[in-house]
């Protein structure tokens, strides 16, 4: 145990503007969470609005949920590695986060399995489909259900506030702020 550090008092609410937000997003942690937010929102759009939007969702599913999902997996791996090798381990890995990570892992595996069902992943990693195929039948169900379970979990257990809503909140806050500044 090192000596107690002086913790500088944080300003609340912090100074937030688009520049700081973008700067912040460029860092790994917020980027990770941004991707997650996009995946969540697009996932919810597909599941909730699918019957109305139909084919319009093709690019959202393919690019925003699909390719960004693949990117998310890579970022997730880097993120985990970074967390493990940084000293923040203890602060990051709260009980809630443990569960959250579990959710992420489940969503990643089921997402990948579903996506592998025909082609893209098989080309890159042959054998993956075979490894995952026994669960392929269940993965869409798990993927969808776990998403909602996670949402419930996130809302019921504070500390892991609903990430998507948090982003929306952030944006609306920024909007309000810029409006105030203009007036």
């Amino acid at each position: 145990m090192t000596g107690q550090k002086e913790i500088s008092e944080k300003k609340y609410p912090p100074d937030v503007n688009y520049r700081t937000v973008l700067k912040g997003l460029a860092r790994l942690d917020p980027f990770f969470h941004l991707l997650m937010a996009i995946l969540l929102i697009t996932g919810l759009m597909i599941d909730l609005l699918g019957p109305w939007l139909g084919g319009w969702l093709w690019s959202i599913r393919t690019i925003a949920h699909g390719y960004l999902g693949a990117l998310f997996i890579l970022v997730f791996i880097v993120y985990i590695v970074q967390v493990i090798y940084s000293k923040k381990m203890r602060t990051v890995l709260t009980a809630t986060n443990y569960v959250d990570f579990l959710f992420y892992i489940i969503l990643i595996i089921t997402g990948m399995t579903t996506a592998s069902a025909n082609k893209p992943w098989i080309d890159v990693i042959p054998g993956l489909f075979h490894a995952l195929s026994p669960i392929a039948e269940f993965t869409p169900a798990i993927h969808t259900a776990v998403t909602y379970v996670w949402i419930v979990f996130s809302t019921v257990f504070p500390g892991g506030i609903l990430h998507g809503i948090a982003s929306v909140y952030l944006i609306s806050h920024l909007k309000k702020k810029s409006k105030m500044e203009r007036s």
């Binding site: 169900a141 969808t144 909602y148 019921v156």
Partner: peptide, 19 residues
């Protein structure tokens, strides 16, 4: 497992209530 896909969105209700 197939109906699970369809019905799991109902979990939004407890989520909304919890939130």
């Amino acid at each position: 497992t197939v109906p699970v896909i369809k019905y799991s969105k109902w979990l939004l209700v407890p989520a909304a209530l919890g939130g």
